[in-house]
Simulated scan of single mutants.
Amino acid sequence: MRILGRNYSLGMSDLRTLPFWRGVFGEFIGTFFFLLSCLIGVWSPNDLVAGSLGTGLCIAVLVHMIDSVSGANINPAVSVALLANGQISLFRCAFYILAQIGGSVTGSGLVLLMTSGSSFNDTTVDGGVEFDSCVPKMEVGYEWQGMAYEFLFTGMLIMQVLRCTDEARPVQNGNIALSVGLVVVVTNLCLIPITGGPINPARITGPAIVSGQTSQLGFYLVGEFAASIITPLVYCPLLTGIPPREDKPGRGGGQG
């Protein structure tokens, strides 16, 4: 089905192929390790730079690891954006999201189980970190503003993903894993003090469910998924099909 220049499909035939299920499992594993890394030692509300760099580098490594297996979405908002842009099928998007949320809950639950009773999971004065503090939060009364920030910065991440996967953009022009990881670093530097900077429904859903802190979950999900729908509509007329600057006629090779 072709709508507004985009090709859409249910993808039912994919369900009978091994690469499809390999991709679903890849999304589960990728999101599982992402949450494992964030909750154990990467995301730190007390160290902005370490938390931002750790999260971005973790994403870069995971994208490089499973890109050829599943496309390395590792983010339900990215999967919905790719669906909205006609790049993946409806069934692939749905199963990817189920795998991502499953990996998020599994990774969060494992961290809680393994750290239960340790100094990591206690509120202490000597540097111990309570598990609940690793759940992204917005200031009470500031939820609408926080939702707007999540919308804007999730949109920036999705814009970069769409640009990286644009067929008009030569692969040799840059490293996709590194560029997406750097967007995550910048986003976390800006948002950790305000919203925790998840820009990823899987990043907030697993820890929120496992810890029982779901009161603000809706604000995160609305902001992030709204960006999934709106960003492709902005990207297409703005950047679709436009080659990188150095590939335009009259650019590069010393020409002005």
Rank of each mutant, 00 (worst) to 15 (best):
M1G: 07
I3Q: 06
G5Q: 07
G5I: 07
S9I: 04
L10S: 08
M12V: 09
S13A: 15
T17M: 09
W21G: 04
G23M: 01
G26L: 02
E27D: 06
F33G: 10
S37W: 08
S44H: 13
S44Q: 14
G56D: 02
L57P: 03
I59K: 08
V61M: 12
L62V: 00
L62E: 00
M65S: 15
G71F: 00
N73G: 03
N75Q: 09
P76F: 00
A84E: 03
N85T: 05
C93L: 06
I97F: 00
Q100I: 06
S104T: 05
G107K: 10
S108W: 14
L110Q: 07
L112S: 07
T115A: 06
S116H: 10
S119D: 13
F120T: 07
F120K: 10
D126T: 15
S133R: 15
S133V: 11
P136L: 15
K137I: 06
M138V: 03
F153L: 15
M156P: 00
L157E: 02
M159T: 09
Q160G: 14
C164L: 13
C164P: 01
V171W: 12
V171N: 10
S179L: 12
G181W: 12
V183E: 09
T187F: 07
N188F: 05
I192K: 04
P193C: 14
P193K: 11
P193E: 11
A202L: 04
R203N: 04
R203E: 00
T205E: 00
G206W: 03
G206T: 00
V210C: 04
S211H: 04
G212Q: 05
L217F: 09
G218R: 03
Y220N: 09
F225G: 03
A227M: 10
S228P: 01
I229N: 02
I230W: 04
L239I: 13
G241F: 03
I242D: 00
I242Y: 07
E246L: 11
K248S: 01
K248A: 15
R251Q: 11
Q255P: 02
